[in-house]
Structures are given as structure tokens and as C-alpha cells.
Amino acid sequence: MRRCQLGESAAWQALYREHAPIVARFVMRMLGRDGPVEDVVQQVFVAVMQSIARFRGDAALTSWLYGIARRVTARHIRGERRHRRRDDRWAREDALGGDVPSAHGRVAARESLSLLERAVLSLNEAHRVVWVMRELEGLSTDDIARALDMRVGTVRSRLFNARKHILAVIEVADGELAAHVREEASEPRARTSEVSS
């Protein structure tokens, strides 16, 4: 790091070789497999190069990189929303277009992957980043809180809401599961009415 801070090209290359794949993986998970991953990774490392002097080593380098990658990715997502572009990059296989196929068809691996991808991309950035870091990157809630500079409670709450949203998408897409949820939701009311009556 010291050599990077002094502008040593070889040190930069070593740092890049080691960490660019991690950043690229994270960015791809945030933006989708057809997202502009290369551009965003480039922007992340430009930001890293410009702010390396401010890295004091208080946090792990990976956490610091995640923090920068998150800021750049968030900026990109906000920009996209401003342009009202429909974000359906992960739905390349068009598995969910049109009518929902049978419940048995839903469990096909390709379709469930596509469904999850769409569900993740429909999350807002604040929830998506927490979900990606926890479920795909395998970070602990403490690590996520450090990387995103937020409280552990906030991380847990966003993770809870993100998972809830994704489960809801999965349930709605599966007619049988949706019926199950409706049945379950109506049951307590029936019971309440029984009690009240």
C-alpha cells in the first residue's frame, strides 16, 4: 500500500491484479451480468487511485474497496434511474416474460435463477447492496456494516426487508406458492372472525 501511495506503477499493477476480480464480481452482482461492469470497475479503480493517499489502513483493504465500489455502483444506479432505463439485464433469457408458466416449470433451474436475478435488480440500491454482500459475497453483518459505514442494526433491517421482498417475488411467480400464501393469510382472519363471532 505504501508503494501504491507513492505512485509505484508495479505496486499498482499488483494491487489491481489481486483485487480487480473481487471488485468486478461485486459490481457484476450489483448491476447484473449484462451490466456495464468494465466501465464501473474502471471508475472504481480511478477513484481508488485518486483517494489512495487517504487510506490509513484503519480498515481492511477489501472493506475499503467494497466501500468505494458501492459508492460508484450506487452513483451508476442512480444515474440509470434518472434516465428511466428499464433494468432487465439479468432477464436475458426472457423466462418470465408474458404468462407465468406452470408451477412445475417454475422450479426449472434456469427459470428460478432468472427470477432471482430480476428480484434482486428490482431492489433499491440500499437494500440490494446489503443483500449482495451477505448472500452472494458471504460477508458477515459486521463486515458489511464496516464496509458501508452503517450500524449493524441497519444492515440487519435492510437484509430482512430485502429477503422479504425477494421471497415475495418468488411466491408471486409461483402460482401454487401464491395460493399457499393466500390461504395462510386468510386463515388467521378466519380464526379471528371465529373468535370474534
Partner: peptide, 22 residues
Amino acid sequence: DYQGALERLAAATTLASALRVP
């Protein structure tokens, strides 16, 4: 469904061939 799709998504975005690093 949730666990399976999660694993497939993690695997699909882990493949070195899928990563596009400038």
C-alpha cells in the same frame, strides 16, 4: 427455490469466464 437460485446465481457470477475485468 430460494437456496437453489441463490447458489446458482453465486456460481454464475463467480465463473472467471463471466468476469469482465478491464
